[in-house]
Nucleic acid binder design. Sequence first.
DNA 1: TGCTAAACGGAACCAGGTTCCGTATCGTTT
DNA 2: AAACGATACGGAACCTGGTTCCGTTTAGCA
Lengths: 194, 194
Amino acid sequence: MPARDTDPPAPRKRADAERNKQALLEAAAAAFVDFGVDAPVRDIAVRAGVGVGTIYRHFPSRADLIVAVYRHQVQACAQAAPALLASSPSPHHALTTWIDLFVDFLITKHGLAEAMHSDAAAFEPLHAYFLDHLLPAVTLLLDAAVDAGQINPIDPLNLLQGVGNLCIGASADSRYNPRHLAAVLVRGLRAIPD
Amino acid sequence: MPARDTDPPAPRKRADAERNKQALLEAAAAAFVDFGVDAPVRDIAVRAGVGVGTIYRHFPSRADLIVAVYRHQVQACAQAAPALLASSPSPHHALTTWIDLFVDFLITKHGLAEAMHSDAAAFEPLHAYFLDHLLPAVTLLLDAAVDAGQINPIDPLNLLQGVGNLCIGASADSRYNPRHLAAVLVRGLRAIPD
DNA sequence: TGCTAAACGGAACCAGGTTCCGTATCGTTT
DNA sequence: AAACGATACGGAACCTGGTTCCGTTTAGCA
């Protein structure tokens, strides 16, 4: 199988198109830092030196753009799960650490957590992408911790969305501390001592 | 003292103005049920049989309107705290029950939780109102539970916002279950058994 | 060098919140 | 009862920000 995992049936793209797509990715990443993931389209277009139409051509919905920008980091986060499970002293410890990682990722992407669960249809691809990649990760960790008798069972999706929600509205200056809350939440999962 | 507790320096309002304000309150409440707290202004205006200008005259910001609509329920929620503390078998139990009450309130008001922590300046009054009324309530419960040695200390504001965040995106049809998550969170506060 | 399809730019469009001001109404005063 | 000033009203106009559309440009190939 030739070049699997990286778009097998590539219908050949024009060089300028590829160049613009790349420019947009960088421009969007920069704009997201300044404005959050709701950065104005026109602003992104200007930064990339293209017209707004070009944004929509490459990324039909905002979710597509967001996914493209954060793809690597989401994958890294997902892949950390098995690694942590192998290297941690206990499954519960691995779970706690992974959640911490996830929280860190979300709170550094201003507005991502908000967008994550937006009911708007336009964000469905984003939602789907995150779930596709991160749900297996949490599930792995939760199953291991449950099997070890360390935590009570919980729907992985529920936990993932809950932690995602906790990260909404976080900012360096406020008293609000999602990291702590997420830790308390995971602590609340621990089995037995009632 | 004459008529304290109900606008002492009332500069006399025109009857029609008062009538419209009342109509708007009812229209908004209805619209909030159908569309959530982001209900279109024009829609609210139509329901109340007034022009949009009238909305802005009575409620300069959307937050003012939301506060006015939910004022009573927020107060009821706040007042439930001391009552629960008195009637519950333990402070931790009272806390759990109160959080449940708070969650119920939020998830039945579509979009309220989202609006609650919006960083937009227009929502500041809403934020302030909620905090003014509910922060004392949680603080009371938390202090009691801490004093009884049942939970580890936590910033009341942090907990309140966290639970508020958990309620975002809840809907009857989805798997997402904020009630359960909030319960797990409170469970994670319990002291000692480490 | 010429040709065609792919890609581009940005003006035009649309939706929804907000403002503004000419008009209507209330409540009081004569 | 009539008139008057203050108060409140309505809704068109405006602004912002996302989305669409089409005439123009350009890459890639013959």
